[in-house]
Measured scan of single mutants.
Amino acid sequence: DWREIAKLAEEALKKQQPVTVNGQTFNDPNEIKKLLETAQKAI
């Protein structure tokens, strides 16, 4: 669910920690931002 992904990505950016989505881990803040943008577009 994109809403859940957006929430996870936002928290990861705030806490500056990696986030795992669908078994894929994102460590890079730039990648997390991209993930968040993608999720927000999909909602």
Rank of each mutant, 00 (worst) to 15 (best):
P29G: 07
Q16A: 13
G23H: 07
R3S: 15
N30K: 13
Q16E: 13
T20K: 10
I43G: 07
L13M: 09
L35G: 01
K41Y: 00
I43A: 08
G23W: 00
K7T: 11
V19E: 01
L8P: 00
L13A: 04
E31Q: 11
E4M: 03
I43Q: 08
T38Y: 06
P18C: 09
P29M: 14
T25Q: 13
A6W: 04
G23N: 08
D28A: 01
E10Y: 06
L8V: 10
I32G: 01
F26H: 07
K33I: 15
W2T: 05
Q17S: 14
P29V: 12
Q24P: 02
K15P: 02
K14D: 11
N30A: 15
N22G: 11
D1K: 07
D1T: 04
T20E: 09
L13I: 13
D1W: 07
T38C: 12
I43Y: 00
Q16I: 08
K34L: 13
W2N: 05
K33A: 13
N27L: 13
A39F: 03
A42Y: 06
L35Y: 00
Q16F: 11
L8K: 12
N27V: 15
E4Y: 04
N30Y: 13
L13K: 03
K33D: 05
P29D: 08
A39N: 02
N22P: 02
E4K: 05
L36D: 02
E37K: 04
A6V: 14
E31C: 08
T20N: 09
T25H: 14
D1M: 04
K7S: 12
Q40R: 15
E4R: 02
D1V: 01
P18H: 09
K33G: 09
G23K: 05
P18I: 08
D1N: 10
E10S: 07
P18Y: 03
N22R: 10
D28W: 05
E11R: 05
K41D: 09
T38Q: 14
A6Y: 08
Q16P: 07
D1H: 09
L35R: 01
L36E: 02
A9V: 10
P18V: 08
F26S: 04
K14S: 12
A12S: 07
I32Y: 00
A9P: 00
K34R: 11
K15A: 12
D1E: 06
E37W: 00
W2F: 07
E37Q: 05
T25E: 10
V21R: 02
T25L: 12
I43S: 08
K34H: 12
K41M: 08
T25I: 12
K15R: 12
I5G: 01
K15M: 10
A12M: 04
A12I: 01
E31W: 08
I32F: 00
L13W: 00
A12H: 03
A39E: 02
I32V: 09
E31M: 10
A39D: 03
N27H: 11
Q24L: 14
K14H: 14
Q40T: 13
K33S: 10
K33H: 11
L13N: 03
A6F: 06
P18M: 08
N27F: 15
Q40G: 07
N22Q: 10
Q16V: 11
A42R: 13
V19G: 02
E31H: 05
E4V: 05
I5R: 01
K7V: 10
T20R: 10
I5F: 01
K15T: 14
I32D: 01
E31L: 10
I43D: 06
A12K: 01
K14R: 13
I5C: 03
E10C: 12
K34A: 12
Q40W: 02
D1A: 05
D28Q: 02
R3I: 15
Q17M: 13
K7M: 13
V21G: 02
T38W: 07
K33V: 12
A42G: 08
A9G: 03
D28K: 01
A42S: 11
T38D: 12
K33Y: 05
K7A: 09
E11S: 06
N22E: 07
W2S: 06
N22H: 10
E11L: 03
N27I: 13
I43C: 06
Q40F: 01
P18K: 09
I5W: 00
G23C: 06
Q24S: 10
G23D: 09
D1Q: 06
E11T: 07
A6S: 07
A12L: 02
A39R: 00
L13R: 03
K34D: 11
R3D: 12
Q40K: 15
Q16Y: 10
V21K: 02
K41H: 13
E37H: 04
I5S: 02
K15Q: 14
V21C: 04
E4C: 02
N30V: 15
K14G: 12
A9C: 13
A42M: 13
L35H: 02
K15D: 10
E11G: 06
Q16G: 15
E10F: 05
V19M: 11
K33R: 15
Q17E: 11
P18W: 04
A42N: 13
T38V: 14
Q17D: 07
Q16T: 08
A39H: 04
P18D: 08
P29H: 09
L36V: 06
Q40Y: 06
Q16D: 12
P29W: 10
I32Q: 02
L36G: 03
I43R: 05
V21E: 01
E4L: 04
P29K: 08
L8E: 07
K15V: 10
N30Q: 15
E11I: 08
L8Y: 03
G23M: 04
V21H: 07
D1R: 08
K41L: 08
R3N: 15
A9F: 10
T20Q: 10
Q24R: 11
K15L: 14
K33L: 14
E11P: 00
K34F: 06
E37L: 05
N22W: 05
K41G: 10
A39Y: 01
D28E: 11
I32S: 00
F26Q: 04
R3C: 15
D28N: 05
K14F: 05
K34Y: 04
V19K: 01
L35D: 02
T25S: 10
V19D: 02
L8N: 08
A9H: 01
Q24M: 15
E31N: 05
L36N: 02
